[in-house]
Amino acid sequence: MIVFLVCFFQAKAQTGTQLQQVGYLLEDALLYSKQYIIPATDGAVYQASGAWNHSNKKRKTWDLSMGINVNMFNVPKTDRTFVINNSDFKFFQIENGGTSATVPTAMGNDNQIYLVGDLDGQQIRLKTPQGINQQFVVYPYLDINLALPYGTELITRTSTNTKLKKGYYQVYGYGLKHNLNQYFPNLTAKNIFFSISSYYSKEDIGFDFLDVKTNFGNLGINQINGLVDTFHFQFSASKQWGNVEVLGNFICNTSKFNYKVSGEKGTIESVFPIQSIINTLLDSIEKDKVNVMGELAANYQSDRFSFLSAITFGKFVNLNFGVQYKVN
C-alpha cells in the first residue's frame, strides 16, 4: 500500500525522493501506533463492561433510579511498555547509536527517547509519545435505570470527557435487562434471582502522539484516537441475604476498533495527504475482538438508596463503586 502511494505521488511531483522518505516515515508511524495504542483500547473495553447490573430483582413498572458510579481500571505492568528496535524501522533510528529501547504504551509512564531520521537532508528529530503515567484510570459516570413492562429495564450510562495525563477518555451506552424470575416464581421465594442483559457502549480514547515537524509543516499525526463500538451480552445470577444482594455475572462482548490520527496539517498536504493516508493505513489494524469476563458484585439496598461495589476480571481487572437513588 505504501509503495503504491509513493509511486503515485512520485509521478505527480518532482520531489520523488522526499515522498519516498515520507512514505517510510508513515510506515514507521503505523508500526509504532499499533504497539502504542492497542493496550489502551483493549483496556477501554473492560472499563465499559463493568457494573451495568445493580440488581436482578424485578422492579415495579416505571420505577426510575439514577446513580453516580466511579470506575477504577488497574493498568497491568505487562501493558505499560514495549520494545522498539532499529531493525523495525525504515525511516527513524534511535538517537545516539542505540539499537533497541523500551518505550511506554499509551498506558505506560512518561519516559521518552528521541528518534531521528533524514528527510532529503533535513534532520527530523522527535520525542516518542508519553503514556498516561497512572496506575489507575479513574472516571465517574451517570447511569439511569427505568423499569419497563414485562420485567424489562432500560439502562443508560454516560461519562463526561475525563482528562488523563496526555489524553482523555469518554464512554456512553445503553441497553436492556430482562428479569427471568417471573417465569420461575419458586426461585423468588428462595431469594435467588436471574436476569439476562444486552447492551451497547461507545468508548472514545485519545492521546498525544507523534509531533513531527518538517520544512513542510507539522505532518498532522500529533494525536491518535481509538474509537470502540462494543456489544455486550450478560447472564447474571444473585442471592439475597437481608439487605445485601450478591451477584455473579458472566459477560461476553465483541468490539470493533477504529483508529484515527489528527493534528495540524502542513503545506505538504497539497501534494501528499499525510493524514488521510495514514488513517487509511490504520484500517489495517482495525480488528474485531471477543472478550469473555466474569464479575462479582455486592449491592446493599435501603428504601431509597443502594450501594454497589463490583470487580470485573479476565485479561484485566476493573473496579466499580456506585450509589443509586430511587426517584419513584
Rank of each mutant, 00 (worst) to 15 (best):
E95F: 13
M293G: 06
S236Q: 05
Q21F: 04
D63G: 11
N145M: 08
V22Q: 10
N328C: 06
T152L: 14
G117A: 10
L142E: 08
F207V: 08
S198F: 10
T152D: 13
K289F: 11
Y172H: 09
T78P: 09
N71F: 09
T312V: 12
N181D: 07
V317H: 11
S33F: 00
Y141F: 11
Y325K: 06
I84K: 00
S100C: 08
L31A: 14
V75E: 01
N74W: 13
N318D: 10
D283K: 15
T15E: 15
G294R: 01
D211G: 01
V244T: 09
L115I: 02
S262W: 10
Y174D: 12
V271G: 09
Y32Q: 15
G220S: 02
F257S: 09
V116K: 14
T152P: 10
L319M: 10
Y150C: 11
N320A: 03
L227M: 13
Y24R: 14
L180V: 01
N258E: 13
S195N: 10
L19W: 00
G175N: 00
A189G: 07
S55N: 03
G248H: 03
L142K: 05
M66Q: 11
S302V: 11
N74D: 15
V212E: 07
F216D: 15
G217R: 02
V244G: 02
F233S: 08
S276T: 14
H178N: 09
Q301A: 08
L247V: 01
K165R: 15
S255W: 04
K12N: 11
T230V: 07
G248P: 02
T81D: 09
T17W: 02
Y139I: 03
T156V: 12
L115K: 00
Q240N: 09
T17I: 12
L319R: 03
N253F: 09
T15R: 13
W52L: 00
L281M: 13
L30A: 13
V171I: 12
F216W: 15
S87L: 10
Q275E: 12
Q112H: 02
V261L: 05
N243D: 14
